[in-house]
Design a protein around this nucleic acid. Structure first.
Lengths: 208, 208
DNA sequence: TATAAATTGTGAAGTAATTCACTATTCTGC
DNA sequence: GCAGAATAGTGAATTACTTCACAATTTATA
């Protein structure tokens, strides 16, 4: 599946997916591209072009089948492939993410948390144990985990990232504001919460 | 300032900003576009084009002054304009965000939290009080707050959003997976954590 | 001082993304 | 069954974004 879906498209697919979930809850079977487009403030032909990538044809004058759309979006985005991950950094954000059960239904299993604070080690969060960071390399290898969710303070981010890379972690979902230096074999996804907000704020609040 | 900076550009500006913070900590005064470009895996002329929007000329053979760049990015993204906001929904994520002090240094003040659970009302989180959601309209008006950070469960999201809109909230930073229906006068920024991850996961982990 | 190397700034070229405009199809109501 | 309306699908046009290529400048060095 998922053959080179551009980032913008996959971002829209996740929004479409949310709408499908809502329509299913409301017991609505079909949905049209203008309905979706209006909801998201985009062009309806854009929606149709995106859906074309899903190989999920609609019916003229009717629209698309909600259930089928949801399934093919999930297939394309890989919900079915369960992926295991560690949360590295058991501060407020790390703990909140550990408690965020939606991850699971989207195909992401948090297996454990890590921290360097001895006070936190061995605590349980949402049925997941917090381990000392020194245990990570061994556990990563034994469990075959190569995804880490990084939620340490900014000033430790690079150092911890280096440690993760040495532990054969290949994917880092970076919730810190640091821009990580990594070798080409390691992929980083920057969540950058404040950056995200600033875009929002900049556009309309500061405005002019 | 901030005259129609495209979203892609402002996203890059936040990444540049992080790098500037790091360089300042490391005591480095100047930085060149190839240095930044290599760090982010983008083209160096892209960096220069972005900086041109900042009205912050560099010097040939030397590069840009780190301090000046940081300042003009902050000016352009509006860090200086303090903005007040409420967190609506005092679950794990809401509490984690309330404790996330970086918001402050980026110009966002969380004044209070809200929830409908009587057990949570009147608790203090990071020196911010949790109020019952029914108090929101009055407080929003008295304090002149029109930004809400929405962290309620998905199934309540639309209903709470409607309530916020009736309380004259104009900007909703939406951390729920719901796609909110709002009038054109209200702006929504979807954080969409899982969507964000799926883009990351889809691209490289699922592969093909 | 002359030469070489590094860097900015930028117009032009090239890509990618979005919107437009239209055709073909299907459904609804008369 | 027919007329009208809504919709999918899609090539073309447009717009936005990125990369290329290179002149102009500055610094370091011999």
């Amino acid at each position: 599946m998922s053959k080179n879906i551009p980032e913008k498209v996959s971002n829209r697919l996740t929004l479409y997916h949310s709408i499908m979930v809502e329509y299913i809850e409301d017991g609505i079977d079909t949905i049209s591209s203008p309905q979706i487009a209006q909801r998201l403030g985009i062009d309806d032909s854009q929606v149709r072009k995106d859906f074309k990538l899903l190989n999920n044809p609609g019916k003229c004058r009717v629209g698309y089948l909600v259930k089928d759309l949801k399934d093919s979006i999930e297939k394309t985005l890989g919900f079915a492939h369960a992926k295991d991950a560690f949360i590295v950094g058991s501060g407020h954000l790390g703990l909140a993410l550990a408690k965020y059960d939606s991850f699971n239904s989207y195909g992401l299993n948090i297996l454990a948390l890590f921290d360097n604070d001895p006070q936190k080690v061995d605590l349980q969060v949402n049925n997941k144990q917090i381990f000392h960071i020194s245990k990570l390399p061994n556990l990563a290898q034994r469990l075959g985990v190569d995804i880490a969710i990084l939620t340490v303070p900014r000033k430790n981010a690079q150092q911890v990232a280096d440690f993760l890379i040495n532990s054969n972690i290949k994917y880092i979902w970076n919730f810190t504001p640091a821009v990580l230096k990594v070798p080409p074999t390691v992929k980083v996804w920057n969540e950058n919460l404040m950056g995200s907000f600033l875009q929002f704020a900049c556009k309309d609040i500061i405005g002019d």
